[in-house]
């Protein structure tokens, strides 16, 4: 169900938001450059693996990208958690 009577077309959204998306890609690129230039190494850090898997989601051509990036960055849910905690 949508609250929007005349949803914006894809062309319209791209025209309106391209500069914003462009700036975000640049922010990310500059962040990676900054890491590259700095002393030390983050190559094997968990956060770097998460970022790299997140970037793959952006490029995989599948829907629900925001939701999938969120789940990637989340701890898993164990349906047996109550039992594990001894709660009823």
């Amino acid at each position: 169900m949508s609250t929007n009577p005349e949803p914006r077309s894809a062309e319209q959204i791209l025209a309106e938001e391209f500069l914003l998306a462009r700036s975000r890609v640049l922010d990310l690129a500059a962040f990676l450059d900054r890491l590259e230039r700095a002393q030390g190494s983050t190559e094997h850090a968990t956060q770097m693996q998460l970022l790299s898997q997140g970037l793959n989601i952006l490029c995989d051509g599948e829907p629900e990208k925001a939701r999938r990036v969120q789940l990637l960055m989340s701890r898993e849910y164990d349906p047996a958690w109550r039992k594990n905690y001894g709660l009823h």
């Binding site: 969120q70 960055m73 701890r75 898993e76 849910y77 164990d78 958690w81 109550r82």
Partner: peptide, 14 residues
């Protein structure tokens, strides 16, 4: 928040 949100929300709803 953050990495705890999904798990915590599911626990709360449960």
């Amino acid at each position: 928040h953050l990495e705890d949100k999904y798990q915590g929300t599911r626990m709360i709803l449960d």
